[in-house]
Design a protein around this nucleic acid. Structure first.
Lengths: 150, 150
DNA sequence: TTGGGTGCAAAGAATTTGCAGCGAG
DNA sequence: CTCGCTGCAAATTCTTTGCACCCAA
């Protein structure tokens, strides 16, 4: 993991009076190295491979802390438990979820701003952020299906 | 609730070999009359006002059944438990969630199709459906905030 | 009639909390 | 040193399940 990023997280924690401890660093590394979307159970099982001593309560507490401080963001999908990903500054993206294999792919193009203005006018709602998830078939599962006779 | 809708649900259940029982009808009515987005706990507490005899296990089982048969759809939001709403045919909408009062407003305009094609080309993902949620301040909370000195 | 549905209570998961000892700053 | 952090286990909360009885079709 990039050292400057660790430093930034450390600073962010310090600002709020928190410490960067071993378990916190370990969780951060898991999320940064694999760049994935992990549930509490995922994180716990991965961290146990590194260090048997860490308890699940710590995982819960750390994820909560990281959400509060904006180090992580939560990804809530239909029909699955919430997952967490690093909240890197300037990284605005959305997700494609394969309904067959469950793989999550990210995509960036999002012209939501253009419709946000329209919606704000209609509803007088002040929009600050948004999430967009698309469900379907990934290229692999899609080509598999084509070879099947329905 | 419109009778024809009840009939449609009844038909849909029958097709799959299920019955339209008292508790199922009661849950359906709650979701149809109030047209809202309710969690399991919401549904349970509302149904207890009508009929003290209904157990929470039935609410879980009924919601599962209604999801399977497509009578309900699930709404999974950040920082809250999953909620359920009626899945009326042809009703494609998205949600505005007020981060202050939690109120959920629906909106329809969604030009996602235009960007879906673009994303499909780039990622070779075959998109079937999508969800879009916008977070911000509703008109009421928004005007309240304006009157506060920050 | 009869097979699915229900309430209830118990079981099983998931999450939170209390506490004594530990360790980053 | 200090005070926040941790592991552990107990407590709490959420969800599922087994079972005998009930009822929609």
């Amino acid at each position: 993991m990039e050292d400057y990023y660790i430093q930034a997280v450390k600073r962010k924690l310090k600002e709020s009076g928190y410490k960067l401890t071993g378990p916190r660093l370990a969780i951060l590394e898991i999320l940064a190295v694999e760049k994935g979307h992990f549930s509490i159970a995922d994180i716990y099982s991965k961290i146990r491979l590194k260090d048997k001593g860490i308890g699940i309560a710590t995982v819960y507490r750390t994820v909560d802390l990281f959400l509060e401080t904006g180090i992580l963001r939560v990804l809530t999908l239909k029909n699955s438990q919430p997952c967490f990903e690093l909240n890197r500054p300037g990284d605005h993206h959305h997700h494609l979820i394969c309904r067959n294999c469950g793989r999550i792919t990210e995509f960036e193009s999002c012209n939501f701003k253009s419709i946000a203005g329209e919606i704000e006018k209609k509803t007088r709602f002040r929009i600050e952020e948004h999430t967009l998830e698309a469900y379907g078939l990934c290229p692999e599962c899609s080509s598999q299906k084509e070879n099947l006779l329905y």
